[in-house]
Design a protein around this nucleic acid. Structure first.
Length: 227
DNA sequence: GCGACAG
DNA sequence: ATCTTGTCGC
């Protein structure tokens, strides 16, 4: 079996106990590519998940937008029985299986995927965006709404400003102001992209709200109220 | 031992 | 994440 195939299967191993999941994250971390390996970007996807039935059902949503004007081109919603509890640091084992299935239902894969949640800005540098990237091979970016790890200087109030997010001696992400005087978001590389490029791509997806369009649309689809 | 802790 | 009405402000 090729190394690529071996890596893909390892990144799709979901039925693990918390301790084994943490060990797998340490192994997967070495497979991350933090350099740009991007195709010409014509489409950008967004992914998010919501829950139903008191958390027993996981609903994943992915939206694909035209990179030039953020027009919605395709969308997919899938439901799966929830298979893992919420454990800070192990979010991917709870959300990624459903997101991968949703992605497989698209007519065509996006050139880049923005994920709701952190990427490299994770205790073991393996947030949901990184895991989705390794499980699919897609270039990914993590966009979190609140901090998981790291510290940073205050971010200027103007839209587009950002401060480096640091953990120990390493820069793990950027705290980006997507709207003037609105709470910033946490951007970090997922897979096949570097931080400066990730920030630029997120800024390019901003329209009128705090979250970049692809994620905002996926958010709507994944949130309650869709029959 | 005491906090912190994505969604 | 989810449970939930109205309310303040551009």
């Amino acid at each position: 079996m090729s190394q690529a195939a071996t890596g893909l299967s390892a990144a799709r191993r979901w039925n693990l106990a918390p301790k084994q999941a943490i060990q797998l994250q340490r192994e997967l971390r070495d497979q991350l590519i933090l350099e740009n390996q991007l195709p010409a970007i014509a489409t950008i996807g967004g992914a998010d998940v919501g829950f139903e039935d008191g958390g027993r059902v996981t609903r994943a949503a992915v939206a694909v937008c035209d990179a030039s004007d953020m027009t919605l081109l395709d969308q997919q919603i899938v439901r799966q029985p929830t298979r893992f509890p919420y454990v800070p640091g192990l979010l991917s084992f709870r959300e990624v299986p459903a997101i991968v299935e949703a992605l497989e239902g698209l007519r065509r894969q996006p050139d880049l995927l923005l994920c709701d949640g952190h990427g490299y800005a994770h205790p073991r540098r393996m947030g949901v965006a990184c895991h989705i990237g390794l499980a699919t091979g897609l270039p990914t970016i993590g966009v979190g709404k609140t901090r998981l790890v790291g510290e940073h200087e205050p971010v200027p109030a103007e839209r587009g400003s950002w401060s480096a997010l640091r953990d120990r001696d390493e820069i793990i992400g950027a705290v980006l102001r997507t709207r003037t005087r609105v709470a910033p978001v946490y951007v970090s590389p997922g897979h096949r992209i570097d931080l400066p490029t990730a920030v630029r791509q997120v800024v390019a997806c901003l329209h009128r709200y705090r979250l970049p369009e692809p994620i905002r649309v996926a958010d709507r689809l994944a949130s309650a109220g869709h029959f």
